[in-house]
């Protein structure tokens, strides 16, 4: 017995060690990316000037007198994400309430697997369908010369964020204790009143987390947006060709050189800070939900 224990201990330490190393790999990757982005993003901002970089309205990276203002990209990313939220959140929210509370089991299975499939579609496919169907569609419906616009990007993003919003919201709604709802029903509330006055408020931190997750996905998407937004560095306007923070990096990286390339890293740094902010908000929401 004693010998067995004696034999077990170094083994336990070894296993613990392996797990620790594996855990540290993730932490190391995050640290590496952060440090690399900061180091490679700062020089261009220094050279251009922080205010000129963040609030400059003109981006002409390869002109003989280049200017590197990313305000159009920042505003486009903010407007695009806000627009996608405006379309996607109501649809996602009501779908989630229906699926979690009201849907018959058969319907629920079908819809949930469809949502799962939607989440699994690669973003380039969203982009392709957007490019071949949505962009010409917008051109014809709104009678504009070209359909590649902020609107097209918003619609594509709204569809792309649906799965994250629906899935997380459904989980949150399903976690609401059945006693709450039973009590509400016993007091004479109708089922619909119960869903919206009892279940939804009880799950609100989870639903908020779902929305923030959607924001994160929308602001970080590059491929699909690049194929439908037109990618010209204009100030955002619904039917204009626009460029997002993500697409600004992705579209010019391949051929860039010198200060242009450094400036692209700076854009990535700004985008990274946005995502960090969103993650911090998400953590805050989840923590508040747990504390309750």
């Amino acid at each position: 017995m004693q010998t067995k224990n004696h034999k077990k201990k170094p083994l336990e330490t070894l296993v613990h060690g392996i797990f620790l190393v594996l855990g540290l790999v993730t932490v190391g990757c995050v640290l590496l990316i952060t440090v690399y982005l900061v180091i490679s993003g700062i020089p261009a901002i220094r050279e251009i000037g922080l205010v000129k970089f963040l609030f400059g309205k003109e981006w002409r990276s390869t002109a003989s007198e280049p200017s590197f203002g990313i305000l159009p990209f920042i505003l486009t990313s903010v407007y695009g994400t806000a627009g996608a939220m405006l379309l996607g959140v109501p649809v996602g929210f009501f779908t989630a309430v229906y699926l979690a509370k009201a849907a018959p089991p058969k319907v629920k299975t079908v819809v949930e697997s469809a949502v799962g499939l939607l989440a699994g579609i690669p973003s380039v496919v969203y982009g392709l369908v957007g490019m071949l169907v949505l962009v010409p569609g917008i051109r014809k419906i709104f009678n504009v010369p070209d359909g590649a616009s902020l609107l097209a990007a918003i619609i594509v993003l709204a569809v792309m964020i649906l799965p994250s919003i629906i899935k997380v919201s459904v989980t949150a709604l399903e976690a609401v204790p059945k006693e709450y709802e039973d009590a509400s029903l016993a007091l004479g509330a109708t089922p619909v009143e119960t869903y919206f006055r009892v279940s939804v408020p009880a799950a609100k931190s989870g639903i908020a987390a779902a929305v923030v997750l959607g924001v994160g996905r929308a602001i970080g998407e590059a491929m699909a947006v690049m194929m439908v937004a037109g990618n010209v560095a204009n100030m955002p306007s619904l039917f204009q060709s626009v460029r997002f923070l993500t697409t600004a990096v992705a579209s010019e990286m391949a051929y860039s050189s010198g200060l242009q390339r450094q400036a692209l890293f700076s854009i990535a740094l700004v985008l990274f800070l946005f995502i960090m902010l969103i993650n911090a908000a998400l953590n805050l929401l989840l923590k508040r939900g747990n504390a309750k």
Partner: peptide
């Protein structure tokens, strides 16, 4: 095409429209 693309550089240099093009779409 996007800024920095060889095709765009070539086209703009030959047509002498460097930095002047009013693109509606810049594709990659």
């Amino acid at each position: 095409r996007e800024a920095g693309s060889g095709t765009r550089d070539g086209f703009e240099a030959i047509t002498k429209t460097e930095d002047l093009c009013q693109y509606r779409q810049e594709l990659t």
